[in-house]
């Protein structure tokens, strides 16, 4: 299927709570899941396709995702294989700004990026969380992410002892 056709037809997607969003074919093809879907329909099917239902993404998250894919529709996207080797360091300031959101939204975005198979967005958002974890103590991580401490004292002692072997002193 010729993705690079000059005309960029409109495509509609519907979120889990029934809100419809309009975007362009070029942007929506950044999602591997939808790309597979469209390739399955085949040549010429796009115009008559109708709205694409996305049952796992709610409207708030979908709005964020569409904002991102529309901004990046002209950029070359790395494949998930390339992302794996990415050691990573420059982040586009736009992306960095874009990812300034509260944790709940970020979790939803990660889940959506995973479902829609957008490697670059998934990488960016997981990395964002990883950056929050960096250089913090276990207690700090717990309070930052609201995680319950379910260790028994004996268990945690065993892990602490094991970890001592892994520390470069």
């Amino acid at each position: 299927m010729d993705i690079d056709r000059p005309s960029d037809p409109q495509v509609s997607v519907v979120s889990s709570d029934g809100t419809m969003f309009h975007t362009t074919l070029k942007s929506i093809l950044l999602s591997g899941t939808i790309k597979d879907m469209i390739e399955h329909i085949g040549e010429g099917g796009v115009e008559n396709m109708g709205a694409i239902p996305l049952q796992n993404v709610d409207s708030k998250t979908l709005e964020i995702v569409i904002k991102w894919i529309e901004h990046h529709k002209d950029n070359i996207q790395p494949t998930s294989e390339e992302i794996k080797d990415k050691t990573a360091d420059f982040i586009d300031p736009w992306d960095e700004n874009f990812l300034e959101m509260d944790l709940d939204k970020l979790y939803n975005l990660i889940t959506a990026a995973n479902y829609l198979n957008i490697p670059q967005l998934l990488w960016l958002s997981t990395r964002k969380i990883a950056m929050l974890i960096k250089n913090r103590t276990p207690q700090e991580i717990r309070s930052l992410f609201n995680i319950e401490d379910d260790w028994t004292p004996q268990e945690i002692e065993a892990v602490q002892k094991e970890n001592q072997w892994c520390e470069e002193k």
């Binding site: 995973n114 997981t126 950056m131 974890i133 991580i141 401490d149 379910d150 970890n163």
Partner: peptide, 26 residues
């Protein structure tokens, strides 16, 4: 979050940060 996503998040971290994470919860 699903395990596969947590793994994706954690792959961005080095050994020191992973060690702290092991102590966060089971």
């Amino acid at each position: 979050l699903p395990t596969e996503i947590l793994v994706k998040i954690f792959t961005n971290l080095n050994d020191k940060d992973l060690l702290s994470l092991t102590l966060v919860n089971t």
